[in-house]
Amino acid sequence: MNAHKIRPAPRADRQRRPDMMGRLRRLLRYRIVVPMMRSRHSPEHAARGSFVGLFWAFTPSVGIQMPLVLITWTLARRFPRWDFNLVLAIAWTWTTNAFTALPCYYVFHLTGQVMFGHWDRLAGFASFRLMWNDIFTAEQSMLEQLQALARVLILDWGVTMLVGSLPWALVIAWLGYRYSLKFVLAYRHARHERMMKRHRNRVA
């Protein structure tokens, strides 16, 4: 009998299962990068989509961000200079989600307290998380949790978080606009150079 233990072969599903970073890269490529590269509109059209998506992403509106983007797009379409890439804007709202909402809300709440001058109400993230968890219980139904969330955002911390989110939303959205515009312009310039090079090679 062989003294060495035979290690079981790795499960096929483990070999096929993509890592988290790989899925994230594919998501970014196909939902954000590819729409920017393939857009037939002006570079500003894609950049405005990034601005709108990132703006709503960094407001205390997780769960209703995509409807807000859709409403914004419906209104913006009436003005050609305000129109933007809807698919790109919706994709950017996924920057904040159920996993990242609480840290973002904490930063918004902290910023709002500072902006209102409530220095005595600043709390650490652990305390904020405990206060947040106390609002929701496992016994609550989905409707009751939504009602509790609406009460928190509208009546309790809503004004503080909304005001505190505005500096973040505006700065991040503007940076998204600038970098998206730069990316699309660089891509189209490189594509034009490739086409011109092919044309010169054919003529030669």
Rank of each mutant, 00 (worst) to 15 (best):
R40W: 01
M195K: 12
T96F: 13
H109Y: 15
S39T: 10
D13N: 03
T96D: 02
G112W: 10
A101D: 03
Y177G: 04
L143Y: 08
M115S: 06
A47G: 06
I172S: 15
E193G: 02
A47C: 07
L54D: 04
A3M: 09
E44V: 11
V62M: 12
A12L: 15
A12V: 12
R11A: 15
L27P: 00
R200L: 14
R14D: 11
H109W: 13
V52W: 09
L68Y: 02
Q65K: 07
M142V: 13
H41T: 06
V69R: 03
V203A: 11
T95E: 00
K197D: 09
Y179D: 00
A204M: 07
R7F: 15
L28K: 00
T95M: 14
E193T: 06
G112T: 01
E193D: 08
P43Q: 06
R11W: 02
L149P: 00
D134Y: 02
P43T: 09
F99C: 00
R191S: 10
R129K: 13
V107R: 00
G49I: 06
T111N: 04
G124N: 04
L54M: 11
A98I: 11
V33A: 12
R200H: 05
A101F: 14
G176T: 08
W132R: 04
A57W: 04
M115G: 04
Q113C: 15
W119L: 09
S42W: 06
L185C: 07
E139D: 15
L185V: 15
S61C: 10
P67T: 09
A150P: 00
A138D: 13
A91Q: 01
N133W: 05
D13Q: 08
P10H: 02
T111R: 03
L162Q: 01
V159C: 01
V163H: 13
R11C: 02
L88W: 08
Q145F: 00
A126V: 11
R48Y: 02
W168C: 01
P80E: 00
I71E: 05
L146M: 08
A98V: 11
A47R: 01
L86I: 15
V163M: 11
Q113K: 13
W94H: 09
D120S: 14
T100C: 07
R48L: 05
F58S: 04
L54N: 03
P10A: 11
Y187R: 12
A148C: 05
E139P: 07
T137H: 12
L110K: 08
T96A: 08
S50D: 00
L110N: 10
P18Y: 02
Q113W: 09
P67F: 10
L88G: 01
L143E: 10
Y106W: 15
Y106K: 14
R26C: 03
Q147C: 04
A148P: 09
H41F: 09
L122R: 13
M195N: 02
K182V: 09
L175W: 12
N2L: 08
I64P: 01
R17S: 10
A91C: 07
W82L: 15
T100Y: 01
L28F: 11
G53C: 03
R14S: 06
H189T: 07
T72V: 07
Y187T: 04
S127E: 10
R16N: 12
Q65A: 08
F55W: 11
L149M: 15
Y106C: 06
R38V: 03
F136I: 11
L86E: 06
M66Q: 08
G117W: 03
W132I: 01
T96I: 14
W73V: 05
V159K: 08
L102Q: 07
P43G: 07
F183L: 12
M21L: 13
L27H: 13
D134G: 11
